[in-house]
Design a protein around this nucleic acid. Structure first.
Lengths: 230, 230
DNA sequence: AAATTTAAGATTGGATCCACGTATCCATGC
DNA sequence: GCATGGATACGTGGATCCAATCTTAAATTT
């Protein structure tokens, strides 16, 4: 999905993608202390490209840095997760609105393909469903043909991803739910930009409260618990 | 506004703020080649903090870097500017919607204060009007109490700012226009979140076409014209 | 015994150094 | 005269080194 291990244009890119993937996949967990030296050793390169990768990730919000105190995988509070969903809702709503003109039969069948795969993976591995779900959203955003908008949405996904994974991992039957997505596709089919935008907003916001509740219950994620070696 | 020259926690911060201010104020212009060594010399520090500052600015989109070819002040196309306005519209719309509950008489008079200052500066320096206008928007966004949202909106302003400045600098009477803002304040006063959100969206999008037209006419800004020494 | 101070270890931030890649400029050939 | 090729100069990316700061743990004091 992300990673793309073959094409490393630079050591910094390698470090960046490695850390990003590790955070999204849960190898580095929220609150983990990321020690530049250790990461550098693991990747067999010097500390500098790692530092720059960490700086980039800090701007994107995936890690938090404090002066002279290094980088920590960002630990989001329930409020912050809510906020990210609010932002995601309007940005994905915008993307969908802009994408409506390029909706045709081929797009619709493509979308249904994603939903089918989600349903098939429903029984199996939890990560699979999540993967297909994100692919569904990413495909839709991509139709907007707005590079910056797409980047921002992807960045939000990266930030939320660790929590989604933990959630799916703990929840037994977190979904089985493709009906909401089917409804969304129905709204898209109608071709009304404003309606589609509203539907997407509602769709994104729908899942937020359950995740936030879960995070609150697991407050090992927001509480002090600190400094597990990465 | 930005800069805050006293509190430099680190050399990197100093470099970051210096370059950011220089770009926003037009000292570094779109297309300018930013040579780490030169910037470092100007600030009397080594190249490294400058490099990291440039990396941060690249993530935020203010500069563009190509591997082994250094950093260039991002030159936006008309399409890209349009996109940024589209994003700004929904994000500021969201911020205003979330801010509505905390609107009271004090806030309204504060807002009118900004508008008064805009009108007063109308005759004088162009930059002043722009400054007050941004302060007006920033104040409103701030009322949402959503740190990430506020950061993202500020980042968008920073990216667009150079072009706004050039625009205001060239245009003789680019505004004199506070009526639209007055209408926006009226909508806010009503206290209906959805209506306020819609009003903000429309307000932001209203100014986009003129700026885009201006940019297209001045296509020295989108055309090759390259490598003026910073 | 608890708390404060102090000292040692570890880690970050910054500077200098080196190697690789890119751009420029001139000479050569068509 | 213009295009092509190579040599030189410049700049970036990465590595190593050094200093300043934070963290820790121990030791002394109350």
């Amino acid at each position: 999905m992300y990673g793309d291990p073959q094409s490393y244009s630079s050591a910094q890119e390698e470090a960046y993608r490695f850390i990003l993937a590790a955070i999204r996949e849960g190898r580095y967990r929220p609150g983990d202390h990321l020690i530049a030296k250790d990461v550098a050793a693991e990747l067999q390169l010097s500390r500098m490209p790692v530092r720059e990768a960490l700086a980039r990730l800090a701007v994107e919000g995936l890690v938090t840095t404090r002066p002279n105190r290094g980088a920590v995988v960002t630990r989001l509070t329930a409020d912050e997760i809510s906020e990210l969903f609010e932002i995601r809702a309007v940005l994905e709503g915008l993307a969908l609105r802009l994408a409506i003109p390029s909706i045709d039969a081929g797009v619709i069948s493509e979308l249904n393909g994603f939903l089918d795969r989600m349903e098939q993976s429903d029984a199996g591995e939890n990560g699979q469903w999540n993967h297909h779900h994100q692919a569904f959203h990413q495909y839709l955003s991509g139709l907007s043909r707005r590079p910056t908008l797409i980047r921002q949405i992807n960045s939000l996904y990266a930030t939320i991803d660790p929590y989604l994974r933990i959630w799916f991992h703990h929840a037994e039957k977190p979904r089985g739910a493709t009906p909401p997505q089917r409804l969304l596709v129905e709204a898209i089919k109608k071709g009304d930009p404003a309606e589609a935008e509203a539907a997407m907003r509602a769709h994104v916001l729908r899942t937020a409260p359950s995740l936030v509740e879960f995070i609150k219950s697991q407050d090992g994620l927001c509480a002090p618990e600190k400094a597990r070696k990465a």
